[in-house]
């Protein structure tokens, strides 16, 4: 399976999905004009990876700003990992935040409150 590489722009995240390592990292700021157009290929890559018999996946979120449409799609990614985890896969979510960034820390906390998949909040 191919890796997923999306270069960052002023309003979209950098994304690298490493199929061999079973890991995908999303970093930067996200306020795309069309969030569906940006995030659907990412969700699709994760689904394909899982369908190829993957046993584990790690998602690293290293975001510093996300608009509300992007929050919704991040929630969809987390939900996908949760479904995978409940079905017997090993899913892990790592949520990174800067020491002085309460917004991103709070956002991570809120996601962590409701998921049944290992969710690590990590101060950078």
């Amino acid at each position: 399976m191919n890796n997923l590489t999306i270069e960052k722009t002023k309003s979209t995240l950098k994304v690298f999905g490493d199929a061999n390592a079973g890991k995908i990292e999303l970093s930067g700021s996200s306020f795309p004009e069309n969030a569906a157009e940006f995030f659907l290929p990412i969700l699709s890559w994760i689904s394909s990876y899982m369908l190829e018999g993957a046993e584990s996946i790690i998602v690293d979120f290293k975001v510093d700003y996300v608009n509300s449409s992007s929050i919704k799609y991040i929630s969809d990614i987390i939900e996908k990992i949760e479904v995978f985890h409940k079905a017997g896969g090993a899913g892990v979510i790592n949520w990174y935040y800067a020491e002085d960034d309460e917004d991103i820390q709070d956002m991570g906390n809120e996601f962590a409150e409701d998921v049944l998949v290992p969710f690590n909040l990590i101060q950078e």
């Binding site: 069309n34 969030a35 608009n67 509300s68 449409s69 929050i71 919704k72 799609y73 917004d103």
Partner: peptide, 13 residues
């Protein structure tokens, strides 16, 4: 086109 979250989050923040 959005997620229906914008106004809620603006009010909260």
């Amino acid at each position: 086109v959005g997620a229906g979250l914008g106004l809620i989050e603006m009010r909260r923040k």
